[in-house]
Design a protein around this nucleic acid. Structure first.
Lengths: 265, 265
DNA sequence: ACCCTCACTTGAACGCGTTCAAGTCATGAC
DNA sequence: GTCATGACTTGAACGCGTTCAAGTGAGGGT
């Protein structure tokens, strides 16, 4: 439950290698230094992250102060900043880990069926289950993620490994279904990203959902997935060629580039 | 250009009358006191807002400090907080005004045509034009708006007059078009909110758009509006009954309630 | 004339995220 | 051994958003 160091396998790629995402502004520091040089270094980093995550869950994001994290972890404030150049970078570890857990859980739960709608519903519901413990604090998190200048944003910041993991999951949702072979290959190529966007919509809905156990979001998933499946299924018929072509063009030209993929041409 | 006091007509309704939007949390103070009692009061309030807007445009949101606003306006920091209980409430005036300007501009520009796709495109493009001067600082603004706990969020906070204004504009986009009479009355009732959501998507896209003059977003609007028109037009045909029914159900049950409307039944 | 009320105003002070000059300490070169 | 290097660590200090106890002063009741 609290071996957050395990996240490192996923989050190791978030360091300051890439050029900045455009004319963003003043050169922002990345999450941490380039490479850990010591074992102790990595331990300290993990300790701080672990402590932060625990406090975030206990008190919420804003109410957890950097001083409290440092004190609780037994280090100085400056030290916390040595490893995480800002408070929001502490979230990244959390985010990476949740993405990984979600993918694993969803894979296990959808293995038994090849029905596309069901697989999609499982994948989304699995996300809601994985994220449930963090619902309250996720609101604050989301606020940060919505900032285009933040490296936490799932949209900008091309080299976000967590998004790649999530998109890959949706590729499997589709590929493992009975629907995939029936579809136009180009569409199969595009759909995983669209399904990831579907998840983003669900996440948006979830963040604003104040019902018990986010029941409304769950119902939204149950209702919207069969519909999505039906729309995708309909795309096979000749009558819809023009509109499907439009949709594909829209995705290729406007959505994929924004989330850091070059058009498939 | 700077008669921000004119905003009052729109923003006067944002005061603490309504009950809080649910089990939100600790009783948050609203933007300001209930009713201005003095002329001088209203003048001071307007002066502070005006100054803040000017500085936001000059320096950006985060770089404009409350101390700077107060100093520049010739009042004390505490006084600024007397009128605006937090920095983010200063944005509300800005937001209300932009919504109002946009609606006026869009109405004027779409008056000459009854073609639905064209009217929709004009409405959206008009928003981009109205918002253009604030593109940089809007990113910071958006970050705040994405917080479900913030009264600035366009989604939660039912009594947001700006959203009502915007939805009303889209009602006119539809009603003034040749398409409206041909559509199912129930659908005509639902569409304005959906079109407003379309605008929200465009806004999201715009916030992340780093191209010159947000050209990519403009192209997105040009490409997505005819498609939206086509989809809506197709909904008239019998074949799509089931899917249209699903869509209507989804909207009525999950979207309208979230943005503070009770289902049409 | 007195004073009470209350809308309005003040600025010092608080707690926060963040920075930075000044350390500490293990490692390897000589 | 000793000394330089540089990764790692420290905590006081800075600037910010925000709060609050303490005013100020115009209007009205007596």
């Amino acid at each position: 439950m609290d071996d957050l160091a395990a996240t490192n396998g996923t989050s190791a790629a978030n360091d300051g290698t890439g050029t900045d995402g455009g004319a963003a502004g003043p050169a922002e520091a990345r999450g941490s230094r380039a490479q850990p040089k010591t074992d102790k270094s990595e331990q300290t980093r993990a300790l701080i992250l672990e402590t932060a995550m625990r406090l975030f869950q206990e008190r919420g994001y804003e109410k957890t102060t950097m001083r409290a994290i440092a004190t609780e972890a037994g280090v100085s404030v400056g030290n916390a900043y040595y490893y995480f150049s800002a408070k929001e970078f502490l979230i990244q570890g959390f985010y990476d880990r949740m993405t990984y857990d979600h993918a694993a859980d969803a894979r296990a739960r959808m293995a038994h069926t090849r029905d596309f709608a069901e697989r999609l519903e499982i994948a989304l519901t699995s996300w809601l289950d994985t994220a449930a413990p963090y619902h309250e604090f996720a609101a604050q998190f989301f606020r940060t993620a919505a900032d285009p200048n933040s490296s936490l944003s799932p949209f900008s910041n091309e080299s976000h490994p967590a998004r790649a993991t999530a998109v890959e999951l949706f590729r499997e949702v589709l590929q493992g279904s009975e629907l995939a072979p029936k579809l136009d290959a180009e569409l199969v190529e595009l759909l995983p990203d669209v399904l990831w966007l579907h998840l983003m919509v669900v996440v948006l809905y979830w963040v604003f959902d104040r019902t018990e156990d986010t029941e409304r979001t769950r119902e939204f998933v149950r209702r919207s997935t069969p519909m999505a499946a039906r729309v995708i299924n309909l795309s096979r018929y000749r009558v819809f060629r023009p509109i499907v072509r439009d949709a594909k063009g829209l995705i290729q030209d406007f959505i994929l580039p924004t989330i850091g993929k070059t058009a498939v041409k």
